[in-house]
Design a protein around this nucleic acid. Structure first.
Length: 498
DNA sequence: CTGGGGACGGGGCCC
DNA sequence: CGGGCCCCGTCCCCA
Protein backbone atom coordinates (compact mmCIF):
# COMPACT_ATOMS: atom_id res chain seq x y z
CA UNK A 1 0.00 0.00 0.00
CA UNK A 2 1.46 3.30 -0.98
CA UNK A 3 1.70 6.09 1.58
CA UNK A 4 -0.95 8.00 -0.27
CA UNK A 5 -3.41 5.18 0.08
CA UNK A 6 -2.64 4.48 3.67
CA UNK A 7 -5.78 4.51 5.71
CA UNK A 8 -7.92 5.22 2.73
CA UNK A 9 -11.45 4.31 3.53
CA UNK A 10 -14.65 4.45 1.62
CA UNK A 11 -17.68 5.95 3.26
CA UNK A 12 -20.69 4.67 1.40
CA UNK A 13 -23.81 6.68 0.77
CA UNK A 14 -26.12 4.01 -0.55
CA UNK A 15 -28.99 6.34 -1.20
CA UNK A 16 -26.98 8.82 -3.18
CA UNK A 17 -27.38 7.28 -6.58
CA UNK A 18 -31.11 6.87 -6.28
CA UNK A 19 -31.55 10.34 -4.86
CA UNK A 20 -29.44 11.83 -7.57
CA UNK A 21 -31.47 10.08 -10.21
CA UNK A 22 -34.67 11.11 -8.55
CA UNK A 23 -33.69 14.76 -8.59
CA UNK A 24 -32.58 14.61 -12.15
CA UNK A 25 -35.92 13.11 -13.00
CA UNK A 26 -37.69 15.89 -11.16
CA UNK A 27 -35.67 18.37 -13.15
CA UNK A 28 -36.61 16.62 -16.33
CA UNK A 29 -40.29 16.69 -15.49
CA UNK A 30 -40.21 20.35 -14.71
CA UNK A 31 -37.97 21.15 -17.64
CA UNK A 32 -35.33 22.51 -15.33
CA UNK A 33 -31.82 22.64 -16.74
CA UNK A 34 -32.91 20.59 -19.71
CA UNK A 35 -30.50 21.17 -22.54
CA UNK A 36 -31.80 18.63 -24.97
CA UNK A 37 -35.26 18.01 -26.32
CA UNK A 38 -36.02 14.73 -27.96
CA UNK A 39 -38.90 14.64 -30.37
CA UNK A 40 -40.73 11.73 -31.84
CA UNK A 41 -43.61 12.22 -34.22
CA UNK A 42 -44.60 15.47 -32.68
CA UNK A 43 -44.09 14.49 -29.07
CA UNK A 44 -41.44 16.45 -27.22
CA UNK A 45 -39.31 15.21 -24.37
CA UNK A 46 -37.12 17.67 -22.53
CA UNK A 47 -34.13 15.94 -21.11
CA UNK A 48 -30.49 16.34 -20.18
CA UNK A 49 -27.68 15.62 -22.52
CA UNK A 50 -25.44 14.35 -19.80
CA UNK A 51 -28.01 11.82 -18.72
CA UNK A 52 -28.70 10.71 -22.22
CA UNK A 53 -25.02 10.42 -22.94
CA UNK A 54 -24.59 8.40 -19.79
CA UNK A 55 -27.33 5.96 -20.61
CA UNK A 56 -27.13 5.74 -24.36
CA UNK A 57 -24.22 4.83 -26.54
CA UNK A 58 -25.92 6.61 -29.38
CA UNK A 59 -25.94 9.91 -27.56
CA UNK A 60 -22.46 9.36 -26.28
CA UNK A 61 -21.29 9.13 -29.80
CA UNK A 62 -23.56 11.91 -30.90
CA UNK A 63 -22.17 14.27 -28.32
CA UNK A 64 -18.65 13.17 -28.79
CA UNK A 65 -18.54 11.74 -25.32
CA UNK A 66 -17.41 8.40 -26.64
CA UNK A 67 -13.89 7.94 -27.75
CA UNK A 68 -13.73 7.67 -31.47
CA UNK A 69 -17.23 9.01 -31.87
CA UNK A 70 -17.94 10.74 -35.08
CA UNK A 71 -20.18 13.20 -33.31
CA UNK A 72 -22.65 15.33 -35.13
CA UNK A 73 -21.83 18.20 -32.94
CA UNK A 74 -23.44 20.83 -35.06
CA UNK A 75 -27.00 20.59 -34.01
CA UNK A 76 -26.78 19.19 -30.58
CA UNK A 77 -23.29 19.85 -29.41
CA UNK A 78 -23.89 23.08 -27.61
CA UNK A 79 -26.71 24.96 -26.01
CA UNK A 80 -30.29 23.79 -25.87
CA UNK A 81 -31.01 21.63 -28.82
CA UNK A 82 -33.55 19.36 -30.35
CA UNK A 83 -32.96 15.85 -31.48
CA UNK A 84 -35.56 14.31 -33.71
CA UNK A 85 -35.99 10.61 -33.16
CA UNK A 86 -38.95 9.65 -35.26
CA UNK A 87 -37.47 6.21 -35.67
CA UNK A 88 -38.31 5.56 -32.03
CA UNK A 89 -41.97 5.59 -31.21
CA UNK A 90 -43.15 8.07 -28.59
CA UNK A 91 -44.21 5.28 -26.30
CA UNK A 92 -40.87 3.59 -26.54
CA UNK A 93 -39.00 6.84 -26.17
CA UNK A 94 -41.03 7.70 -23.13
CA UNK A 95 -40.33 4.32 -21.61
CA UNK A 96 -36.65 4.62 -22.34
CA UNK A 97 -36.51 8.04 -20.76
CA UNK A 98 -38.29 6.70 -17.75
CA UNK A 99 -35.70 4.00 -17.61
CA UNK A 100 -32.86 6.48 -17.95
CA UNK A 101 -34.11 8.53 -15.04
CA UNK A 102 -35.51 5.83 -12.79
CA UNK A 103 -33.57 2.66 -13.57
CA UNK A 104 -36.88 1.00 -14.16
CA UNK A 105 -38.43 0.11 -17.42
CA UNK A 106 -42.15 0.70 -17.35
CA UNK A 107 -43.85 -0.52 -20.44
CA UNK A 108 -46.82 -2.38 -21.73
CA UNK A 109 -46.05 -5.89 -22.80
CA UNK A 110 -47.46 -5.05 -26.18
CA UNK A 111 -44.95 -2.27 -26.50
CA UNK A 112 -41.97 -4.28 -25.49
CA UNK A 113 -40.79 -4.84 -29.00
CA UNK A 114 -40.85 -1.16 -29.79
CA UNK A 115 -38.91 -0.45 -26.66
CA UNK A 116 -36.40 -3.10 -27.51
CA UNK A 117 -35.93 -1.67 -30.96
CA UNK A 118 -35.65 1.81 -29.58
CA UNK A 119 -33.12 0.63 -27.06
CA UNK A 120 -31.16 -1.00 -29.83
CA UNK A 121 -31.23 2.18 -31.86
CA UNK A 122 -30.09 4.31 -28.99
CA UNK A 123 -27.55 1.85 -27.76
CA UNK A 124 -29.16 1.16 -24.41
CA UNK A 125 -27.98 -2.35 -24.42
CA UNK A 126 -29.19 -3.55 -21.06
CA UNK A 127 -32.76 -2.61 -21.93
CA UNK A 128 -32.48 -4.14 -25.34
CA UNK A 129 -31.14 -7.30 -23.81
CA UNK A 130 -33.87 -7.49 -21.21
CA UNK A 131 -36.61 -6.97 -23.76
CA UNK A 132 -35.01 -9.31 -26.22
CA UNK A 133 -34.74 -11.93 -23.61
CA UNK A 134 -38.40 -11.72 -22.76
CA UNK A 135 -39.49 -11.50 -26.33
CA UNK A 136 -37.12 -14.15 -27.43
CA UNK A 137 -38.26 -16.54 -24.77
CA UNK A 138 -41.88 -15.82 -25.40
CA UNK A 139 -41.29 -16.11 -29.09
CA UNK A 140 -40.30 -19.70 -28.82
CA UNK A 141 -43.89 -20.67 -28.43
CA UNK A 142 -45.53 -17.82 -30.15
CA UNK A 143 -44.32 -15.09 -32.39
CA UNK A 144 -40.94 -15.46 -33.86
CA UNK A 145 -38.48 -12.87 -32.89
CA UNK A 146 -37.33 -11.53 -36.18
CA UNK A 147 -34.53 -9.41 -34.87
CA UNK A 148 -32.03 -12.19 -34.55
CA UNK A 149 -32.81 -12.97 -30.99
CA UNK A 150 -29.83 -13.82 -28.94
CA UNK A 151 -31.22 -16.32 -26.56
CA UNK A 152 -29.43 -16.05 -23.33
CA UNK A 153 -29.61 -19.76 -23.05
CA UNK A 154 -28.47 -20.77 -26.43
CA UNK A 155 -28.02 -24.39 -25.58
CA UNK A 156 -31.57 -24.53 -24.36
CA UNK A 157 -30.78 -26.61 -21.34
CA UNK A 158 -33.64 -26.71 -18.94
CA UNK A 159 -32.86 -29.67 -16.81
CA UNK A 160 -29.68 -28.31 -15.37
CA UNK A 161 -29.67 -26.52 -12.09
CA UNK A 162 -31.96 -23.61 -12.53
CA UNK A 163 -30.07 -21.43 -10.17
CA UNK A 164 -26.83 -22.13 -11.89
CA UNK A 165 -28.39 -21.41 -15.20
CA UNK A 166 -29.90 -18.26 -13.89
CA UNK A 167 -26.58 -17.06 -12.77
CA UNK A 168 -25.04 -17.82 -16.10
CA UNK A 169 -27.76 -15.88 -17.79
CA UNK A 170 -27.31 -13.01 -15.44
CA UNK A 171 -23.67 -13.04 -16.16
CA UNK A 172 -24.24 -13.17 -19.88
CA UNK A 173 -26.68 -10.33 -19.78
CA UNK A 174 -24.29 -8.25 -17.78
CA UNK A 175 -21.45 -9.10 -20.02
CA UNK A 176 -23.49 -7.88 -22.91
CA UNK A 177 -24.32 -4.68 -21.17
CA UNK A 178 -20.62 -4.13 -20.79
CA UNK A 179 -19.94 -4.53 -24.44
CA UNK A 180 -22.64 -2.74 -26.36
CA UNK A 181 -22.60 -3.21 -30.05
CA UNK A 182 -22.04 -0.13 -32.14
CA UNK A 183 -25.37 1.48 -32.42
CA UNK A 184 -24.84 2.77 -35.88
CA UNK A 185 -24.54 -0.71 -37.18
CA UNK A 186 -27.88 -1.57 -35.81
CA UNK A 187 -29.78 1.42 -36.96
CA UNK A 188 -30.01 0.03 -40.42
CA UNK A 189 -31.40 -3.21 -39.12
CA UNK A 190 -34.59 -1.69 -37.86
CA UNK A 191 -37.22 0.21 -39.64
CA UNK A 192 -39.91 1.20 -37.26
CA UNK A 193 -43.10 2.36 -38.84
CA UNK A 194 -44.61 5.33 -37.20
CA UNK A 195 -47.79 4.39 -35.50
CA UNK A 196 -50.68 6.84 -35.25
CA UNK A 197 -51.61 5.58 -31.85
CA UNK A 198 -48.39 6.94 -30.51
CA UNK A 199 -49.11 10.59 -31.01
CA UNK A 200 -49.95 11.24 -27.44
CA UNK A 201 -47.98 13.82 -25.61
CA UNK A 202 -45.06 12.39 -23.78
CA UNK A 203 -45.99 13.92 -20.51
CA UNK A 204 -48.86 11.53 -20.49
CA UNK A 205 -46.57 8.68 -20.95
CA UNK A 206 -46.65 7.60 -17.38
CA UNK A 207 -50.36 7.67 -17.22
CA UNK A 208 -50.54 5.88 -20.49
CA UNK A 209 -48.42 3.18 -19.11
CA UNK A 210 -50.63 3.22 -16.12
CA UNK A 211 -53.73 2.48 -18.04
CA UNK A 212 -52.40 -0.79 -19.22
CA UNK A 213 -49.05 -0.89 -17.69
CA UNK A 214 -46.39 -3.44 -17.51
CA UNK A 215 -43.68 -2.95 -15.11
CA UNK A 216 -41.05 -5.02 -16.65
CA UNK A 217 -39.50 -5.32 -13.29
CA UNK A 218 -42.47 -5.82 -11.12
CA UNK A 219 -45.41 -3.81 -10.10
CA UNK A 220 -46.41 -0.95 -7.91
CA UNK A 221 -44.02 1.48 -6.37
CA UNK A 222 -41.79 -1.35 -5.45
CA UNK A 223 -41.49 -2.18 -9.07
CA UNK A 224 -38.60 0.06 -9.68
CA UNK A 225 -36.80 -1.88 -7.05
CA UNK A 226 -36.97 -5.06 -8.86
CA UNK A 227 -34.65 -5.89 -11.64
CA UNK A 228 -35.70 -9.28 -12.83
CA UNK A 229 -32.77 -11.26 -13.85
CA UNK A 230 -32.57 -12.79 -17.21
CA UNK A 231 -33.21 -16.40 -16.78
CA UNK A 232 -34.01 -19.35 -18.88
CA UNK A 233 -37.50 -19.24 -17.56
CA UNK A 234 -39.68 -17.64 -20.15
CA UNK A 235 -42.59 -15.56 -19.05
CA UNK A 236 -45.61 -17.72 -19.20
CA UNK A 237 -48.72 -16.67 -20.98
CA UNK A 238 -50.25 -16.16 -17.62
CA UNK A 239 -47.50 -13.84 -16.71
CA UNK A 240 -47.97 -11.93 -19.89
CA UNK A 241 -51.61 -11.67 -19.11
CA UNK A 242 -50.90 -10.62 -15.60
CA UNK A 243 -48.56 -7.99 -16.71
CA UNK A 244 -51.13 -6.52 -19.00
CA UNK A 245 -53.54 -6.28 -16.17
CA UNK A 246 -51.08 -4.81 -13.79
CA UNK A 247 -51.99 -1.73 -11.98
CA UNK A 248 -50.49 1.65 -12.68
CA UNK A 249 -47.16 2.76 -11.58
CA UNK A 250 -48.64 6.20 -11.40
CA UNK A 251 -46.15 8.85 -10.66
CA UNK A 252 -43.23 6.74 -9.80
CA UNK A 253 -41.62 7.91 -6.63
CA UNK A 254 -38.17 7.57 -7.91
CA UNK A 255 -36.32 7.83 -4.69
CA UNK A 256 -37.34 4.70 -2.93
CA UNK A 257 -39.71 6.39 -0.57
CA UNK A 258 -40.29 4.95 2.82
CA UNK A 259 -43.61 3.26 3.12
CA UNK A 260 -43.44 2.43 -0.50
CA UNK A 261 -44.14 -1.16 0.10
CA UNK A 262 -46.97 -0.41 2.40
CA UNK A 263 -48.47 1.79 -0.23
CA UNK A 264 -48.18 -1.00 -2.67
CA UNK A 265 -49.72 -3.50 -0.34
CA UNK A 266 -52.57 -1.29 0.61
CA UNK A 267 -53.10 0.41 -2.66
CA UNK A 268 -54.29 -2.67 -4.42
CA UNK A 269 -51.58 -2.20 -6.96
CA UNK A 270 -49.72 -4.99 -8.65
CA UNK A 271 -50.65 -8.07 -6.81
CA UNK A 272 -48.56 -10.62 -8.53
CA UNK A 273 -44.93 -10.91 -9.19
CA UNK A 274 -43.50 -11.84 -12.47
CA UNK A 275 -41.77 -14.92 -11.30
CA UNK A 276 -39.77 -16.44 -8.54
CA UNK A 277 -36.52 -15.95 -10.35
CA UNK A 278 -33.89 -14.10 -8.42
CA UNK A 279 -34.28 -10.38 -8.49
CA UNK A 280 -31.60 -7.77 -8.38
CA UNK A 281 -31.74 -4.93 -5.96
CA UNK A 282 -31.24 -1.74 -7.92
CA UNK A 283 -29.64 -0.04 -4.99
CA UNK A 284 -26.95 -2.45 -3.93
CA UNK A 285 -27.14 -4.75 -6.97
CA UNK A 286 -27.51 -7.71 -4.72
CA UNK A 287 -29.34 -10.71 -6.05
CA UNK A 288 -32.28 -11.56 -3.86
CA UNK A 289 -33.56 -15.10 -3.98
CA UNK A 290 -36.98 -16.20 -3.04
CA UNK A 291 -40.50 -15.14 -3.74
CA UNK A 292 -41.48 -11.88 -2.18
CA UNK A 293 -38.11 -11.31 -0.62
CA UNK A 294 -37.11 -8.22 -2.53
CA UNK A 295 -39.50 -5.87 -0.72
CA UNK A 296 -38.14 -7.20 2.52
CA UNK A 297 -34.64 -6.52 1.34
CA UNK A 298 -35.52 -3.07 0.07
CA UNK A 299 -36.55 -2.04 3.53
CA UNK A 300 -32.92 -2.34 4.50
CA UNK A 301 -32.28 0.56 2.13
CA UNK A 302 -35.37 2.63 2.77
CA UNK A 303 -35.18 2.23 6.49
CA UNK A 304 -38.85 1.50 6.57
CA UNK A 305 -39.87 -0.36 9.71
CA UNK A 306 -43.52 -1.12 9.37
CA UNK A 307 -43.74 -3.54 12.25
CA UNK A 308 -44.04 -1.85 15.60
CA UNK A 309 -44.06 -3.41 19.02
CA UNK A 310 -47.25 -2.43 20.78
CA UNK A 311 -45.54 -2.80 24.12
CA UNK A 312 -42.47 -0.63 23.72
CA UNK A 313 -42.89 1.03 20.36
CA UNK A 314 -39.73 -0.40 18.88
CA UNK A 315 -40.10 -0.83 15.18
CA UNK A 316 -38.82 -3.61 12.98
CA UNK A 317 -38.35 -4.13 9.32
CA UNK A 318 -39.76 -7.62 9.53
CA UNK A 319 -42.71 -9.23 11.11
CA UNK A 320 -40.80 -12.29 12.18
CA UNK A 321 -38.29 -10.13 13.99
CA UNK A 322 -41.06 -8.37 15.80
CA UNK A 323 -42.46 -11.70 16.77
CA UNK A 324 -39.18 -12.72 18.30
CA UNK A 325 -38.92 -9.35 19.97
CA UNK A 326 -42.27 -9.89 21.60
CA UNK A 327 -40.76 -12.77 23.48
CA UNK A 328 -38.90 -10.20 25.53
CA UNK A 329 -42.16 -8.81 26.75
CA UNK A 330 -43.85 -12.13 27.25
CA UNK A 331 -40.79 -13.58 28.91
CA UNK A 332 -40.95 -16.47 26.57
CA UNK A 333 -37.62 -18.10 25.94
CA UNK A 334 -38.61 -21.16 24.05
CA UNK A 335 -35.19 -22.65 23.65
CA UNK A 336 -33.99 -24.12 26.96
CA UNK A 337 -30.57 -25.61 27.32
CA UNK A 338 -30.91 -29.26 28.35
CA UNK A 339 -27.71 -29.06 30.33
CA UNK A 340 -28.19 -25.89 32.28
CA UNK A 341 -30.94 -23.49 33.26
CA UNK A 342 -30.18 -21.15 30.40
CA UNK A 343 -33.00 -20.41 28.02
CA UNK A 344 -32.82 -18.54 24.78
CA UNK A 345 -34.89 -16.45 22.48
CA UNK A 346 -33.48 -18.01 19.37
CA UNK A 347 -32.79 -21.54 18.37
CA UNK A 348 -29.42 -20.53 17.04
CA UNK A 349 -28.55 -18.93 20.33
CA UNK A 350 -29.17 -22.26 21.89
CA UNK A 351 -27.08 -23.89 19.28
CA UNK A 352 -24.22 -21.55 20.03
CA UNK A 353 -24.71 -22.16 23.67
CA UNK A 354 -24.68 -25.91 23.29
CA UNK A 355 -21.26 -25.77 21.78
CA UNK A 356 -20.06 -24.49 25.13
CA UNK A 357 -21.26 -27.61 26.84
CA UNK A 358 -19.95 -29.91 24.20
CA UNK A 359 -16.61 -28.16 24.15
CA UNK A 360 -16.65 -28.37 20.42
CA UNK A 361 -14.44 -25.82 18.77
CA UNK A 362 -14.78 -26.76 15.18
CA UNK A 363 -13.65 -23.48 13.72
CA UNK A 364 -9.94 -23.35 13.52
CA UNK A 365 -7.69 -20.55 12.40
CA UNK A 366 -5.72 -21.85 9.44
CA UNK A 367 -2.70 -19.84 10.43
CA UNK A 368 -2.33 -20.06 14.15
CA UNK A 369 -4.65 -23.05 14.54
CA UNK A 370 -6.50 -21.53 17.39
CA UNK A 371 -9.91 -23.07 17.58
CA UNK A 372 -13.21 -21.36 18.17
CA UNK A 373 -16.64 -22.53 19.00
CA UNK A 374 -18.19 -20.05 16.67
CA UNK A 375 -17.44 -19.25 13.11
CA UNK A 376 -17.91 -15.54 13.53
CA UNK A 377 -15.37 -15.57 16.31
CA UNK A 378 -12.92 -17.19 13.99
CA UNK A 379 -13.62 -14.56 11.40
CA UNK A 380 -13.15 -11.83 13.91
CA UNK A 381 -9.96 -13.43 14.98
CA UNK A 382 -8.69 -13.56 11.44
CA UNK A 383 -9.58 -9.98 10.73
CA UNK A 384 -8.33 -8.75 14.04
CA UNK A 385 -4.70 -9.57 14.03
CA UNK A 386 -4.19 -11.14 10.66
CA UNK A 387 -3.08 -14.32 12.27
CA UNK A 388 0.44 -13.25 13.02
CA UNK A 389 1.01 -16.49 14.82
CA UNK A 390 1.52 -18.13 11.52
CA UNK A 391 1.72 -21.85 12.02
CA UNK A 392 2.96 -21.55 15.53
CA UNK A 393 0.53 -24.16 16.65
CA UNK A 394 0.06 -27.67 15.64
CA UNK A 395 -2.95 -28.08 13.44
CA UNK A 396 -5.91 -29.75 14.90
CA UNK A 397 -7.10 -32.87 13.32
CA UNK A 398 -8.43 -32.56 9.85
CA UNK A 399 -11.89 -31.66 8.69
CA UNK A 400 -13.04 -35.21 9.02
CA UNK A 401 -13.01 -34.57 12.69
CA UNK A 402 -16.07 -32.42 12.21
CA UNK A 403 -17.56 -33.58 9.01
CA UNK A 404 -20.79 -31.89 9.81
CA UNK A 405 -19.25 -28.51 10.00
CA UNK A 406 -19.21 -26.77 6.70
CA UNK A 407 -16.95 -24.18 8.12
CA UNK A 408 -14.23 -26.72 8.35
CA UNK A 409 -14.09 -26.77 4.65
CA UNK A 410 -14.07 -23.06 4.53
CA UNK A 411 -11.58 -22.28 7.19
CA UNK A 412 -9.64 -25.39 7.71
CA UNK A 413 -5.93 -25.86 7.13
CA UNK A 414 -6.51 -26.11 3.39
CA UNK A 415 -7.01 -22.41 3.38
CA UNK A 416 -3.44 -21.59 4.19
CA UNK A 417 -2.67 -20.45 0.71
CA UNK A 418 -5.47 -17.97 0.51
CA UNK A 419 -6.18 -17.04 4.05
CA UNK A 420 -4.40 -13.73 4.03
CA UNK A 421 -4.95 -12.81 0.45
CA UNK A 422 -7.78 -10.67 -0.66
CA UNK A 423 -9.47 -11.53 -3.87
CA UNK A 424 -8.59 -9.48 -6.87
CA UNK A 425 -11.88 -7.71 -6.70
CA UNK A 426 -11.56 -7.26 -3.00
CA UNK A 427 -8.26 -5.53 -3.44
CA UNK A 428 -9.81 -3.28 -5.95
CA UNK A 429 -12.42 -2.32 -3.50
CA UNK A 430 -10.84 -2.12 -0.16
CA UNK A 431 -7.67 -0.35 0.54
CA UNK A 432 -8.20 -0.80 4.23
CA UNK A 433 -9.34 -4.15 5.37
CA UNK A 434 -10.73 -3.18 8.70
CA UNK A 435 -13.73 -4.82 10.27
CA UNK A 436 -15.61 -1.59 10.05
CA UNK A 437 -15.07 -1.42 6.38
CA UNK A 438 -15.89 -5.03 5.95
CA UNK A 439 -19.21 -4.41 7.55
CA UNK A 440 -20.13 -2.22 4.65
CA UNK A 441 -18.75 -4.15 1.82
CA UNK A 442 -21.79 -4.16 -0.38
CA UNK A 443 -22.16 -0.45 -0.28
CA UNK A 444 -18.50 0.07 -0.81
CA UNK A 445 -18.80 -1.96 -3.89
CA UNK A 446 -21.62 0.19 -4.96
CA UNK A 447 -19.83 3.38 -4.21
CA UNK A 448 -16.63 2.34 -5.83
CA UNK A 449 -15.80 3.57 -9.24
CA UNK A 450 -15.60 0.09 -10.60
CA UNK A 451 -18.72 -1.11 -12.27
CA UNK A 452 -20.25 -4.10 -10.69
CA UNK A 453 -20.48 -6.26 -13.79
CA UNK A 454 -16.85 -5.74 -14.57
CA UNK A 455 -15.93 -6.52 -11.02
CA UNK A 456 -18.07 -9.57 -11.11
CA UNK A 457 -16.43 -10.77 -14.24
CA UNK A 458 -13.00 -9.94 -13.13
CA UNK A 459 -13.63 -12.00 -10.08
CA UNK A 460 -15.54 -14.81 -11.73
CA UNK A 461 -13.32 -15.26 -14.71
CA UNK A 462 -10.20 -15.41 -12.66
CA UNK A 463 -11.68 -17.67 -10.13
CA UNK A 464 -13.84 -19.96 -12.16
CA UNK A 465 -11.24 -20.59 -14.73
CA UNK A 466 -9.76 -22.88 -12.16
CA UNK A 467 -13.02 -23.92 -10.62
CA UNK A 468 -14.56 -25.08 -13.85
CA UNK A 469 -17.09 -22.26 -14.02
CA UNK A 470 -19.44 -24.22 -11.88
CA UNK A 471 -21.05 -22.24 -9.18
CA UNK A 472 -22.30 -23.27 -5.86
CA UNK A 473 -25.54 -25.05 -5.83
CA UNK A 474 -26.78 -22.83 -3.13
CA UNK A 475 -27.92 -19.40 -4.11
CA UNK A 476 -25.00 -17.12 -4.60
CA UNK A 477 -25.12 -13.59 -3.53
CA UNK A 478 -23.70 -11.77 -6.46
CA UNK A 479 -23.06 -8.75 -4.38
CA UNK A 480 -20.78 -10.75 -2.27
CA UNK A 481 -19.00 -12.52 -5.02
CA UNK A 482 -15.98 -10.35 -4.77
CA UNK A 483 -15.18 -11.38 -1.28
CA UNK A 484 -16.88 -14.71 -1.24
CA UNK A 485 -14.88 -16.13 -4.03
CA UNK A 486 -12.23 -16.92 -1.54
CA UNK A 487 -14.60 -19.28 0.11
CA UNK A 488 -15.87 -20.69 -3.10
CA UNK A 489 -12.78 -22.65 -3.87
CA UNK A 490 -13.40 -25.35 -1.38
CA UNK A 491 -17.10 -25.19 -1.71
CA UNK A 492 -16.93 -25.68 -5.39
CA UNK A 493 -14.68 -28.59 -4.93
CA UNK A 494 -16.98 -30.02 -2.39
CA UNK A 495 -20.17 -29.54 -4.22
CA UNK A 496 -18.97 -30.43 -7.63
CA UNK A 497 -17.49 -33.57 -6.24
CA UNK A 498 -14.07 -32.74 -7.58
C1' DC B 1 -8.25 -10.39 22.35
C1' DT B 2 -11.91 -13.66 23.60
C1' DG B 3 -16.49 -15.40 25.09
C1' DG B 4 -21.18 -14.79 24.91
C1' DG B 5 -25.74 -12.69 23.92
C1' DG B 6 -28.39 -10.34 20.79
C1' DA B 7 -29.62 -8.13 16.36
C1' DC B 8 -30.05 -8.16 11.56
C1' DG B 9 -30.48 -9.71 6.81
C1' DG B 10 -30.80 -13.59 3.44
C1' DG B 11 -32.54 -17.98 1.90
C1' DG B 12 -35.34 -22.29 2.20
C1' DC B 13 -39.53 -24.38 3.13
C1' DC B 14 -44.24 -24.53 3.64
C1' DC B 15 -49.02 -23.07 3.64
C1' DC C 1 -47.82 -16.13 -5.63
C1' DG C 2 -47.23 -13.91 -1.22
C1' DG C 3 -46.11 -14.24 3.21
C1' DG C 4 -44.99 -16.62 7.62
C1' DC C 5 -41.74 -19.20 9.89
C1' DC C 6 -37.42 -20.90 10.64
C1' DC C 7 -32.47 -21.44 10.24
C1' DC C 8 -28.13 -19.62 9.11
C1' DG C 9 -24.26 -16.41 8.70
C1' DT C 10 -22.55 -12.27 10.15
C1' DC C 11 -21.97 -8.33 12.84
C1' DC C 12 -22.18 -5.52 17.04
C1' DC C 13 -21.78 -4.84 21.76
C1' DC C 14 -20.35 -5.79 26.28
C1' DA C 15 -17.97 -8.13 29.96
Amino acid sequence: MSPGEDGLIGIPFPEHSSELLSRLNAQRRSGLLCDLTLTSRGARYPTHRSVMAAVSLYFRQLFGAEEGAEGTEGSVGTGCSVCQLDCVSPDALDALLEFAYTATLTIRSSGMREVMEGAQLLGIQCVADACRHILGEAGEAGEAAEEVPRPLDEDGHRAASRRKQDRRNVAKAWRNTQTPEPVRQQISEYEMPASPEHQEHPQNGASRASQQGVLLNGSGPSAHWSHPLPSEEPPSEDEEEESRSMQPVSSLPHSLPPQAESVRAVGGGGRKRKSQTPQQCPVCQKIIHGAGKLPRHMRTHTGEKPFQCVACGVRFTRNDKLKIHMRKHTGERPYPCPSCPARFLHSYDLKNHLSLHSGDRPYECPLCHKAFAREDHLQRHRKGHSCLEFRTRRPRKGPEEHPSSPAQLQHGPLRLTTASASSAAGQLLFQQDSPGVAAHRPTLLESSGVSYPSLLWRAMEGHHRAAGMEERESGISLTHVAWEEEEEDEEDIEEEGL
